[in-house]
Design a protein around this nucleic acid. Sequence first.
DNA 1: GTCTATAGGCCGATAGAC
DNA 2: GTCTATCGGCCTATAGAC
Lengths: 200, 200
Amino acid sequence: MGISTQDKIKIAARKIFIEKGYSGARTRDIAEEAGINLALVNYYYRSKDTLFKIIMEEKIDELFGTIIPILAKKDTSLIEKIDEVVDKYFDLLLKVPELPLFVINELRQENINSKIVNRLKVIFENKDIVKYLNELNPNLSNYHIMMNFIGIIIFPFISKPIFVSSSIIDQNEFSALIKTQKGIVSQLVKSLALINPQIK
Amino acid sequence: MGISTQDKIKIAARKIFIEKGYSGARTRDIAEEAGINLALVNYYYRSKDTLFKIIMEEKIDELFGTIIPILAKKDTSLIEKIDEVVDKYFDLLLKVPELPLFVINELRQENINSKIVNRLKVIFENKDIVKYLNELNPNLSNYHIMMNFIGIIIFPFISKPIFVSSSIIDQNEFSALIKTQKGIVSQLVKSLALINPQIK
DNA sequence: GTCTATAGGCCGATAGAC
DNA sequence: GTCTATCGGCCTATAGAC
């Protein structure tokens, strides 16, 4: 069984939108990448905008959805949760390193609809998650913990373009760096426990 | 003395490019923001592309140039250097929080020219900087130290869109969070010294 | 230097044949 | 469902008047 035309378009759209962003991507790029006729993009998805919103929603779920079921579990310790989240994120981000930068960058533009906003709110205001994360360091606010927790995990992937597109390192060296980075991240997240915002 | 037309265009271009990225920005937006006639953009800067490259170079210097003179100083301790870098970055990024995301995102596209690449290389391969930073943790490679050092400082600003555009927090709350974040970042950078990539 | 007007090309979207 | 052809609009860039 081959892939349906509709799915070919979606697969191509994922690649092109992530690569070039909404305004940099052309429906012609997507059609070419999918190996189908330009008119079919509109036939199946009505407009570039509709297609983009579908991809965006999917990617937000992929990026933030990973974290919910793990952190909300009731029978694991906080340390186990952290290790599992770091594990899962590195698996995901090694496959799609551009994901965090794509999502964050498009969130900044006004392409957002209320559906996406609500999805984010559900994640960040989930009471179980807030409660468990707070155990990490009671001196810090929920947002600080959340911001630093997520930030420490994803920043190696966000900073990738600095090192790779400037040819300071290449793709292979980046992959090697990331293997060590995983251990660093794991320890760094746990060291959030030691931080006291009162002292300097 | 008023501002020259040429400068008005550059000031407007900074704002528009940072807000919308290269492909999302229109020369019409820039002209309107500058309060001048559309044709003058091309009169003074020949093309959108030329103007963009000027802004980009300026912003890369702003973002990465800050770090060089501080880290290369010979008469300050590593801890003093870290504190000064964190200080300077927070001053800068409180004024232009969108700066890191803008630069990194555009680096990812192919808009780069060799001039910019070279500038990055000069920074990341400066022997003094490499030597001093390595004192922080001899168990880690230069790139790991550099990546984590820069990453820890800038990720609060990069993750801003996640929290702000989803209305989880607003601009004022973000500013308040950032004040505490500065202390966290300072301690987090120093805790890189304790990390051992061997253990898990 | 600054304006108006427009060229020229690209892009999203659709009409209509098969 | 898939194609070709094309429309209409927008965007960068420039020609030419002042």
